Amino acid sequence: MNDTELPEALRSRLCLTADGLIPAIAQEAATGEVLMLAWMDETALAATLRTGQATYWSRSRRELWRKGATSGNTQQVRRLRLDCDGDALLLEVDQVGPACHTGAATCFTDGEIWADGEITADGEDEEDR
């Protein structure tokens, strides 16, 4: 096994998409706040496990990217969990700087569409539509 391969015991549990990807949810370890959703392939997961730094697969650029490599907004992984079906990962991380590429602390700060049984229409007031 080399540095880009996963242990077979883990690899056999993964349920990847047809594109060879698995969704990876990053969550702030200290607070439980959901930070972002990204994608990993086997190589990104192996790099994350090897280095402890969150590494993802960019679907738009079609390449690996280590979170914070250019921005400095890194994610040190404390714990990585595979869900019961093997089709999603949860990364508990120590986030340095904002997690979102927009500069927001989390990618889930805008766009509320439902709360307390009410549709909020993406956070817009009715008069704004």
Rank of each mutant, 00 (worst) to 15 (best):
M1L: 01
L6Q: 10
L6V: 01
P7N: 05
E8S: 02
E8Y: 05
L10P: 01
R13S: 09
R13V: 04
C15H: 13
C15N: 14
L16K: 00
T17Q: 15
T17D: 15
I22D: 00
P23F: 02
I25S: 05
A26S: 13
A26N: 12
Q27W: 04
E28Q: 14
E28D: 15
A29W: 10
A29L: 05
T31S: 15
L35Q: 07
M36W: 04
L37I: 03
A38G: 06
E42D: 10
T43V: 10
A44L: 06
T48V: 09
T48P: 03
T48Y: 02
Y56T: 02
W57C: 02
W57A: 01
R59C: 11
E63I: 01
E63N: 09
E63L: 08
L64K: 03
W65I: 01
G68P: 08
S71P: 11
N73L: 06
T74V: 08
Q75C: 07
Q76I: 06
R79C: 11
L80F: 06
R81L: 09
L82A: 06
L82F: 11
L82C: 13
D83A: 11
C84M: 06
G86P: 02
A88M: 13
L90R: 12
L91Y: 14
L91E: 15
V96Q: 15
G97S: 14
P98F: 05
C100D: 07
H101R: 06
T106L: 04
T109A: 12
D110N: 12
D122A: 07
E124Y: 07
